[in-house]
Structures are given as C-alpha cells and as structure tokens.
Amino acid sequence: DENEERIRAFALYKGIDPEKARELWERGEINKDDEEKAWREYK
C-alpha cells in the first residue's frame, strides 16, 4: 500500500533501516517536508 511505499522511500532517502523508519512513522516523528521530498524523489 502507499504508506508502505512512503515508509520505504523515506528510509532510502534518510539512509536508515525501513523498520526504524516504520517506528518513526508510527510515533509521528517523521518530518512531513522530508517525507514529501523523499516521496517525490522516489517516484
């Protein structure tokens, strides 16, 4: 689903483990601007 892809995109963008990215996502600790930037680059 799209959230999974967004988490993966963010992990790649930040160079972090996707599981770590998922934890940040679930806790609401992902910066929305960074997340959008990562998503645009990923697509």
Rank of each mutant, 00 (worst) to 15 (best):
D1M: 12
D1W: 13
D1V: 11
D1E: 13
D1L: 11
D1Y: 13
D1S: 12
D1H: 10
D1R: 11
E2F: 13
E2I: 14
E2G: 10
E2C: 15
E2M: 14
E2T: 12
E2S: 13
E2V: 13
E2Y: 14
N3T: 15
N3Q: 14
N3M: 15
N3E: 14
N3G: 08
N3W: 15
N3K: 15
N3V: 15
N3L: 15
E4Y: 09
E4T: 08
E4G: 06
E4M: 08
E4K: 05
E4I: 08
E4P: 03
E4A: 09
E5N: 06
E5S: 06
E5L: 09
E5Y: 06
E5H: 09
E5V: 05
R6Q: 04
R6V: 05
R6E: 04
R6W: 11
R6A: 06
R6P: 01
I7V: 07
I7W: 11
I7F: 05
I7D: 01
I7C: 03
I7T: 01
I7Y: 05
I7S: 00
I7N: 01
R8V: 11
R8N: 09
R8M: 14
R8A: 10
R8E: 05
R8I: 15
R8K: 14
R8C: 13
A9Q: 06
A9K: 05
A9W: 11
A9S: 05
A9M: 05
A9I: 09
A9F: 08
A9G: 01
A9T: 02
A9N: 05
F10S: 01
F10D: 02
F10M: 08
F10W: 12
F10I: 15
F10T: 02
F10E: 02
F10Q: 01
F10P: 01
A11K: 00
A11S: 04
A11F: 01
A11H: 01
A11W: 02
A11D: 00
A11R: 00
L12H: 10
L12I: 14
L12C: 14
L12R: 11
L12A: 13
L12N: 08
L12D: 07
L12S: 09
L12K: 13
L12W: 15
L12Q: 13
Y13N: 03
Y13G: 02
Y13R: 01
Y13H: 04
Y13M: 08
Y13L: 07
Y13K: 02
Y13T: 01
Y13S: 03
Y13Q: 03
K14G: 03
K14I: 13
K14E: 04
K14Q: 10
K14W: 15
K14A: 14
K14S: 11
K14R: 08
K14V: 13
K14L: 15
K14H: 12
G15Q: 08
G15P: 00
G15R: 05
G15V: 02
G15C: 13
G15M: 03
G15A: 05
G15F: 01
G15H: 08
G15N: 10
G15L: 02
I16V: 05
I16Y: 04
I16A: 00
I16K: 00
I16M: 09
I16N: 00
I16D: 00
I16Q: 00
I16C: 06
I16H: 00
D17F: 04
D17S: 15
D17E: 10
D17I: 04
D17N: 09
D17K: 08
D17Y: 03
D17G: 07
D17T: 15
P18T: 14
P18W: 14
P18F: 15
P18H: 14
P18A: 11
P18K: 11
E19R: 09
E19G: 09
E19A: 13
E19I: 11
E19P: 02
E19L: 09
E19C: 14
E19V: 11
K20T: 14
K20G: 05
K20E: 14
K20D: 12
K20P: 01
K20A: 13
K20R: 13
K20F: 12
K20W: 12
K20I: 14
K20Q: 13
A21N: 00
A21T: 01
A21Q: 00
A21F: 02
A21W: 02
A21L: 02
A21H: 00
A21E: 00
A21S: 04
A21V: 09
R22W: 07
R22V: 03
R22H: 06
R22F: 07
R22I: 04
R22S: 04
R22G: 02
R22M: 05
R22K: 12
R22Q: 06
R22D: 00
R22L: 07
R22N: 02
E23N: 05
E23T: 06
E23A: 08
E23G: 04
E23M: 07
E23D: 10
E23I: 08
E23P: 01
E23L: 10
E23V: 08
L24R: 01
L24V: 03
L24G: 00
L24N: 01
L24H: 03
L24Y: 06
L24F: 05
L24M: 15
W25M: 08
W25I: 09
W25A: 04
W25L: 08
W25H: 05
W25T: 00
W25D: 01
W25C: 07
W25G: 00
W25P: 00
W25K: 03
W25S: 02
W25Q: 03
E26G: 07
E26L: 14
E26W: 08
E26Q: 11
E26R: 10
E26Y: 13
E26V: 11
E26H: 10
R27D: 05
R27E: 05
R27L: 10
R27T: 08
R27Y: 04
R27N: 12
R27Q: 10
R27F: 05
R27S: 12
R27V: 04
G28V: 01
G28P: 00
G28E: 03
G28D: 05
G28N: 07
G28S: 04
G28M: 05
E29D: 11
E29K: 06
E29H: 06
E29R: 04
E29S: 06
E29N: 05
E29A: 09
E29T: 05
E29Q: 10
I30K: 02
I30N: 02
I30T: 04
I30C: 04
I30M: 06
I30H: 03
I30G: 01
I30F: 12
I30P: 01
N31W: 06
N31T: 14
N31E: 10
N31P: 12
N31H: 10
N31K: 08
N31G: 09
N31S: 15
N31I: 07
N31A: 11
N31L: 10
N31M: 08
K32S: 12
K32M: 09
K32L: 12
K32I: 11
K32H: 10
K32Y: 10
K32V: 10
K32T: 10
K32E: 11
K32D: 08
K32F: 11
D33G: 08
D33Y: 09
D33L: 09
D33H: 08
D33V: 10
D33P: 04
D33Q: 10
D33R: 06
D33E: 14
D33I: 08
D34M: 06
D34T: 05
D34K: 01
D34E: 15
D34G: 02
D34V: 04
D34Q: 06
D34H: 02
D34A: 05
D34P: 01
E35K: 08
E35A: 15
E35H: 06
E35W: 15
E35Q: 12
E35V: 15
E35N: 07
E35F: 15
E35I: 15
E35T: 10
E36W: 06
E36K: 04
E36N: 06
E36L: 09
E36T: 06
E36H: 04
E36D: 10
E36C: 11
E36V: 07
K37I: 12
K37N: 13
K37C: 10
K37E: 12
K37M: 12
K37G: 06
K37F: 09
K37Y: 08
K37W: 08
K37D: 10
A38D: 03
A38E: 02
A38F: 12
A38G: 05
A38W: 10
A38L: 04
A38S: 12
A38N: 04
A38M: 06
A38P: 02
A38I: 07
W39L: 06
W39C: 08
W39T: 01
W39S: 02
W39H: 03
W39F: 07
W39N: 02
R40W: 13
R40P: 03
R40V: 10
R40K: 14
R40D: 10
R40A: 14
R40S: 12
E41C: 12
E41Y: 13
E41V: 09
E41G: 05
E41W: 15
E41A: 14
E41T: 07
Y42S: 04
Y42T: 03
Y42M: 05
Y42K: 03
Y42E: 04
Y42G: 03
Y42V: 04
Y42C: 07
Y42W: 12
K43V: 13
K43F: 14
K43C: 15
K43G: 13
K43R: 12
K43W: 13
K43T: 14
K43A: 10
K43M: 14
K43P: 05
K43L: 14
K43E: 09
K43Q: 13
